[in-house]
């Protein structure tokens, strides 16, 4: 890993921290607060690729765990990993991994639609799979009920996947970070 890789990893960890500073938007009908922060892992994966994106998200969570109040609302510390919904935080690592892996694979023919699809798969499908199973396991409640309790967050997450996709394809055009050689889809 080069110095440049480490700087990029640190940069997206810092970006994820900064996205937590924006005040949460509240969807009027559902009254569910959505924060911009979960854009961070999708962007890290989609802009930096699987390896750097995953390490970047991991680094962010380590900084939270050692006691920096970097999560939205100024939360932080090991305590946030002790709560029943910690799977939705740990899952971010796999969000970045999934979005990064898929983006690398389809790098040479990436469109907004593909990037949106990848963001939905990594940022919603994979994230909820981990988060919901975590809740179901540590709290001993059925998976279906856990899903119903969190379904109100999905519309906000779809909007975020759209924003992430737009950013990923625009940055790809303006300042591509994934080397074509790393894109395994085409040689």
């Amino acid at each position: 890993m080069t110095t440049r890789d480490i700087v990029h990893i640190a940069l997206f960890a810092a970006l994820t921290a900064m996205l937590g500073i924006f005040p949460p938007l509240t969807i009027p009908v559902l009254a569910v607060p959505i924060t911009a922060q979960s854009l961070g892992p999708m962007l890290a994966g989609g802009v930096l690729g699987a390896k750097r994106g995953t390490l970047s998200t991991l680094l962010f969570l380590v900084l939270v765990a050692v006691g920096l109040p970097l999560l939205s609302g100024g939360r932080g510390g090991i305590g946030v990993f002790a709560g029943p919904t910690a799977g939705f935080l740990v899952g971010w690592v796999f969000t970045a991994l999934t979005v990064g892996f898929l983006t690398e694979r389809f790098w040479s023919r990436l469109t907004f639609v593909l990037a949106f699809l990848f963001s939905v798969v990594g940022g919603i499908l994979v994230l909820y799979l981990i988060g919901l199973n975590w809740v179901a396991m540590v709290a001993g409640i059925p998976l279906g009920r856990a899903f119903l309790a969190s379904a109100a967050f999905i519309p906000g997450d779809v909007i975020k996947a759209g924003i992430a996709a737009a950013v990923i394809v625009t940055v790809r055009r303006a300042y591509p970070m994934i080397q074509p050689a790393a894109a395994l889809g085409r040689r």
Binding site: I6, L11, A14, L15, L63
Partner: peptide
């Protein structure tokens, strides 16, 4: 990486 992240947050 940790030192750089802490430095980047205010820069960002």
């Amino acid at each position: 990486a940790i030192a750089l992240t802490l430095r980047f947050i205010p820069v960002l």
